[in-house]
Write a protein that binds this DNA or RNA. Sequence first.
DNA 1: CGTATTATTGAGCGGCGTCAAGCACAGTGG
DNA 2: CCACTGTGCTTGACGCCGCTCAATAATACG
Lengths: 256, 256
Amino acid sequence: MSLNFENIDAPCEDVKSCIAEKFRRIGLISNEHLRLLAKFEDNPAEIRAGTEILSQDNPTNEFFVINKGWVVSSMKNITGVNTVIDIHHPGDIVGVSQLPYESSPYSSVTATNCVICPFPRNSLDDLLKISPRLSGMFQTVCMIEQAILHDRIAMMSASEAHVRLCHFLLQTFSRLKFMNSDLTDRFYCPLNQRTIGEAIGVTSVHVSRTFAKLAEMGLIERNRNFVRFVDWQRAVKFTGFTDRYENVDVAWLPDA
Amino acid sequence: MSLNFENIDAPCEDVKSCIAEKFRRIGLISNEHLRLLAKFEDNPAEIRAGTEILSQDNPTNEFFVINKGWVVSSMKNITGVNTVIDIHHPGDIVGVSQLPYESSPYSSVTATNCVICPFPRNSLDDLLKISPRLSGMFQTVCMIEQAILHDRIAMMSASEAHVRLCHFLLQTFSRLKFMNSDLTDRFYCPLNQRTIGEAIGVTSVHVSRTFAKLAEMGLIERNRNFVRFVDWQRAVKFTGFTDRYENVDVAWLPDA
DNA sequence: CGTATTATTGAGCGGCGTCAAGCACAGTGG
DNA sequence: CCACTGTGCTTGACGCCGCTCAATAATACG
């Protein structure tokens, strides 16, 4: 199989602030607020793939906005099994759900070389103080995240491996596409099959078999770390996927 | 086996507002803010068990504070399988994660006779406008929810049925206990085994076997719908359970 | 080019689903 | 007081999806 994939892992274009860009794509936001959001990315740092930026059960006072690259958050359970909780892309904030806890419930590791922007806990209460609207938008972003978690739970509990994998790929792609409209039907997935397995709840061995099955079924094509959706609509119907970044309603937000 | 269980399904004591009580238990909050929160419960309504108060894929502009009883939220997937997304108790808000969407991603059904207090979407932006601190506390509650979802995903993907069930029981109990300090080691569980199965991702048949196994292992005792933890500490270690309502840190919140 | 990591493929097995029958209990009506 | 009915729980038989163990191939990297 010789597909012609160019590298389309384009990060958030060289805009100054990815988080501002993300908020802008979610709903109406003033230029002033965009400038305030951009401050979260005042201290960019280049980080190697495989670096742990948050450590499970260890205290932190730092959060991170991702500017470039992929970050994987996972929890190790009592039997030593790792589970991927979330995958973060440019514009995402890593560590938000750790906000009410002194120690992080999970670890976050860079899956690729990244540019990340650490900021202190206090900055978040600044955000709350700026305006009710911005505060509500922050809330909205968290609720979108939560809807995605709900979908994942529904998948985990009630589907076979090939449905889960396909859903995971759709999910991942649509998150990338939200920030990068250039994407059409294919993307670069830097995650290895062990990590994908930890995300969908199967072993790496079975991920391999399952990828083969999806290809056989004519839903995807693979080449190295590239994945292409052969028939997006069919895949969506097959898995019951809903894009939680679409049809976001921010009309309820306060005006200022 | 003849255990002597009295009915200890005490709801939020006849305090006017369960949600105010919940926030009070999470962190320092002024009396003025408590009064404002209490307004969410201005319109209590008695509802029969089995009533659908939110319907998947249907638009709503109403949210609900639970004053008494249990509410179960679940999603039906493409193959018709139902999955329990969340279980709500007195003081919880049903529908928060539906906030950014016109149509609800899930259905919510009363599992017992309930007292619930509907309120309109607008009330939530009022909450954001009252004060950054209150807004942050609301955020905190959502993040606790999120941490619990993370735990559930970790359980679903990487544990056998008996570990999942035990974890689910610990989880449920600790949520009840948070609002009802009288609870010691047992609680009334109004959910049938089909619903429990939908929550932990196994069939009702297997829930039955798994309950039997946990009893055999000496971790729990059962009598009708009552569950008693024989050895809480052992159960906690066995499942790696963390109580996300404990050690909540609200020090980062703005002062007002 | 040598070594480490990752992906593929096969064989065997076990946990859990499915199907189905039997039991316990509550509510209803005679 | 007892048949009738419905709902939920229990238990057995059997099969399949996905795990484990293990060997080999492919790829990345120094």
